[in-house]
Simulated scan of single mutants.
Amino acid sequence: MSEFVRIAPGALTIGRPLPWDVHDTDGKVLLCQGYVIQTESQLEQLFERGYFKPRVIEVLPEDDDAASNEADGNPFARYPDYLHALEKALASIAAGNPEARKQLQDLAQALEQACALAPDSSLALVHLYSVGPTIHEQIIFYAILCQLIAHQFGLNEQRTKILTEAALSANLALVPVADKLNAFNKVLSDEQRSVIRKHPQRSIRALRAVGVENKLLLTIIAQHHEQADGSGYPAGLSGADIRPEAEILALAERYVAMITKRAYRNRMNVTAARKLIANLADGGLRPAIPKALLRVLGEYPPGTLVRLENNEVGVITGRPVRASGPFVHVVFDSAGERYEVPQQRDTNVPDFNILALEEPDMMPSMNFSQIWGFSGSPKIP
Rank of each mutant, 00 (worst) to 15 (best):
L107G: 03
E62F: 01
W20G: 10
L128D: 02
R55A: 12
L86H: 02
E58P: 12
D26K: 03
D120P: 10
L31Y: 15
A124M: 05
T25K: 15
A67T: 11
V131T: 11
E40V: 07
E137P: 09
L90A: 04
G132W: 10
T134L: 14
E70D: 12
A85T: 03
L46A: 03
H84T: 14
D63V: 09
L104V: 10
A91G: 12
H127A: 02
A91C: 08
L107M: 02
F76D: 10
P17M: 15
Q109L: 15
L117Y: 01
L107P: 00
A71F: 02
P80E: 00
S92D: 08
A71T: 14
L46F: 07
Q38F: 04
A100G: 00
V126W: 02
D81R: 01
T39M: 13
L128C: 09
S121F: 09
Q33N: 14
A116R: 04
H136T: 12
E87K: 15
G50D: 05
H127W: 05
E58N: 10
W20T: 03
N69Q: 12
E87S: 15
G50C: 02
S68E: 13
A67E: 11
I14A: 14
D120C: 05
A67H: 08
A95D: 01
L107K: 01
D72G: 13
L107S: 05
V36T: 08
A67K: 05
T25Q: 04
T134H: 12
D24R: 00
E87L: 15
D26C: 14
P19D: 06
A114G: 13
E70S: 15
S41K: 00
K102T: 01
Y82A: 13
E70P: 13
D63H: 07
F52H: 07
E99G: 07
H127P: 10
A100V: 09
V22P: 06
A89G: 02
I14D: 11
G34R: 05
D21A: 05
D24M: 00
K28E: 08
L125I: 03
L60W: 02
T134K: 13
F52D: 07
A89R: 00
T134C: 13
D65S: 14
L90F: 04
G27D: 11
A124L: 10
R49M: 13
L104K: 02
A89I: 04
I37A: 03
R49F: 06
N69K: 13
A66K: 15
A85Y: 00
D65T: 11
Q105P: 04
E112F: 08
S68F: 04
C115V: 07
A110I: 03
L90M: 03
P80N: 01
Q138C: 11
I37C: 08
A89S: 02
G15F: 05
V36F: 09
I37K: 13
A77F: 06
H127F: 14
A95N: 00
A108R: 02
Q103E: 15
D106F: 06
P80M: 12
